[in-house]
Simulated scan of single mutants.
Amino acid sequence: MLNKALRSRDIDTLILFQFIITDLYEQLKDLHYNHRISTSAPILCVYRGQLLSKVELNDMKSSIGRYVSFFSFLSTTKVREVALSFITIAADASKNMPAAKNDLQRVLYEINIDLTSVTSKPYADIKPHSYFQTESEVLFTLGSIFKVEGITRTKDGIYVIKLVLASESKSKSKELLHYIKSNLEEKPDIISLGHVLKEMGAYDKAEQCFERQLCELKDHSSFEAARCYIGLGNLAYVQGDNDLAFDYSQEALKINESLFFDDENLSVCYNNMANAYSSSKDDYQKALKYHNKSLALKTKTNGGDSLEVARSFFNIGLTNYHQGKYEIALKKFNRSL
């Protein structure tokens, strides 16, 4: 029921389940760090069998070589035959569907996990805690990130999608993972769900998340309230309502400056204020002031060569360009490369 609500973006149900989502995440995190999966090999392969629509399968095909994230807690098994049995069960059930609606394809995910690597999204072997221990289940948390390595088709028509769990300790994916982590947040809750929905273009549902959470908060000067205002400000900005984006960003900044404990969140507020001054007020001097404040905090938090710092240099270059300072703009653009 929880995964169904996640897939359908059922905000009302997800709000009811928010404590279960958080608790499940915390339990997975504890198991991941304190009860590591033991195996003689450094690479563990797990499997998941299911049906995908032709549209979803084509999306996967177009994602080969790229990273994907699943909008649910992902259940897998160490036993290939168990995953194949789930495909058979699902395929038999789909036979009762009208032919026009039944475009489902049989899919087997093969997921390689480098057990020696670091990932920001916890996973764990939950067999000792599962009612169905014969399934040898490995559970990935909501929003786990994978690279699509390739897709093949077996003689009996099953599409095999090969995935690799993305790792922060692999240099090629480290920047990407940091970007996703800093923009979509690590801990799953209703606010982080709103950010994910915003990135997916589901603006109305994202707004529901932020507004509902804000209504439930008793203290509108809290860190959680600031997160809601940041989300609402980002939503207003991407939808072109620059005045509203300015108001929300200003409210979030006021709260975060009074809290003094989260440089990363404060840098987001400074960046949003800079965008608001550029777009809503045409005040490029104040925009530069806030872009530089954001840059200083991002450099302190992430290091001078991070993707977030590069984005700040690009924004500073763009602001200088709008001011007609083309030589300075070019230097900042080059620094962002």
Score class of each variant (00 low, 15 high):
P122C: 06
L104D: 03
T116L: 04
N34L: 12
N334E: 11
Y248N: 01
K218G: 00
R106C: 09
M97W: 13
K281F: 05
D114A: 15
Y270A: 06
S53F: 08
Q323L: 15
L177E: 05
G150C: 07
K170F: 13
N102I: 03
Q250K: 13
F313C: 12
L307H: 15
A202T: 10
A310K: 13
F223N: 12
L165S: 02
S117Y: 09
S192W: 07
T134W: 13
V46G: 00
K95W: 08
D23W: 13
N3A: 06
E224P: 01
S117R: 07
I161W: 05
D243S: 14
E207K: 13
F146W: 03
F260D: 10
R7Q: 08
D305M: 15
A93D: 14
Y326S: 09
N112R: 10
Q18H: 05
I151A: 04
G304A: 13
T301G: 12
H129G: 11
T13A: 15
A329D: 07
Y229G: 02
L253G: 01
E257M: 09
R7F: 10
L84A: 06
I190G: 00
Y109Q: 01
E199M: 08
N34T: 03
G324K: 05
E186D: 12
A296Q: 11
K4A: 15
L176I: 13
N256M: 10
T319S: 06
V55C: 08
L6S: 00
A274C: 11
A245G: 04
S62P: 07
G303Q: 07
L184K: 04
L318I: 07
N183P: 04
V238T: 12
K4L: 12
N183K: 04
Y25Q: 04
D59P: 06
K281C: 04
A274V: 06
C269S: 09
L330I: 05
T154P: 02
I191D: 03
V160D: 03
E264C: 12
G65F: 01
T76A: 05
L295G: 06
F132N: 14
E175N: 10
Q133Y: 14
K174T: 15
I151M: 09
S63I: 07
V118D: 13
S192A: 15
T13G: 08
I190N: 00
I64W: 10
E110F: 10
F86C: 07
A236Y: 01
R311S: 05
M60V: 05
L52G: 10
N302I: 03
L163M: 04
I20F: 11
N3I: 03
Q133L: 06
E211Q: 00
K174W: 11
S144R: 01
E264Q: 15
S38E: 13
L142V: 07
V118C: 12
L244C: 09
H322Q: 13
Y203E: 07
F223Y: 13
C215N: 00
Y248C: 01
E251W: 08
S280D: 02
G317T: 09
D305T: 04
Y109A: 00
Y321G: 10
K332Y: 15
E264Y: 09
D263Y: 11
I230H: 02
Y270W: 15
L28D: 01
Y123Q: 14
Y290K: 08
N34K: 09
